[in-house]
Design a protein around this nucleic acid. Sequence first.
DNA 1: AAGTGGACCTGCTAGC
DNA 2: TGCTAGCAGGTCCACT
Length: 271
Amino acid sequence: MPELPEVEVTRRSFAERIRGAEITGVRVGKPLRWPLGVDPEQLVAQRVGAVTRRGKYLWLALERGGLLLHLGMSGSLAFASRVGAPGPHDHFDLVTRRGTLRLTDPRRFGAVVWSPAPDAGAAAKLLAGLGVEPFDAAFDGAHLHAALRGRRLSIKDALLGGRIVVGAGNIYACEALFEAGIDPRTRGDRVSRTRCEALAKAIRQTLSRAVETGGSTLRDFRDAHGMAGEFQREARVYGREGLPCVRCGTTIRRVVQGQRATYHCPGCQKR
DNA sequence: AAGTGGACCTGCTAGC
DNA sequence: TGCTAGCAGGTCCACT
């Protein structure tokens, strides 16, 4: 589910409400991708600080250290003053005086990991090597072009890798490449400087529009209030195999790259 | 070093 | 109706 827009929409939906709340209990369900890395009792009585985002990770600052959260493929967070009994896919509850933050994640590719700081311990290891933030001033066509130098892998795989720029997953990489008119199979080092400018712009535009519309709810994404996203209605290529391109009428094609589906318009997107 | 493929885990859907 | 194969928003790791 969650690419940068969904993670950011989630963050915005509970960050201010949870800020300053005192933790009164922690419930851990089935194992997630990585161990929590701390005795849950150590979190009790601490106050929650700022909730920030790096790529598709959230950092929940506590008084001593913090929690790094990832939603994996199927995770979502809910924050409510009252939550029901945990279901089979509710794997982490952070109970505070103001409400409970609950991670639901059927596939359990997500994670909640304690770390002494975002740039130390377990968090540092997970965040190391992440590419630049797409809304950061450091991300532009020049950066993209330089980072792609000598890279023979496809531009789509380069974006998904997250080592150049973070945030665009399978949906938004497909959408941004469509907006930029670039065939997703184009070798990274064959994308011209000019097209890198267009692509950087398209990535920023696509992601910011997705944040505005609440992210994409393909199946089950919800923000921490339980609100679904609307961006999937604006997708031009993702999930539209066999349908006519909204821009040129050519049939949208589905190909497989790196074991993931890629959707593109052969009429609008060129190598 | 870069690139590729497998692994993790569960639920849903299309097709027979 | 019931079973099965295939597919799904991520990303780490081992191997070539």
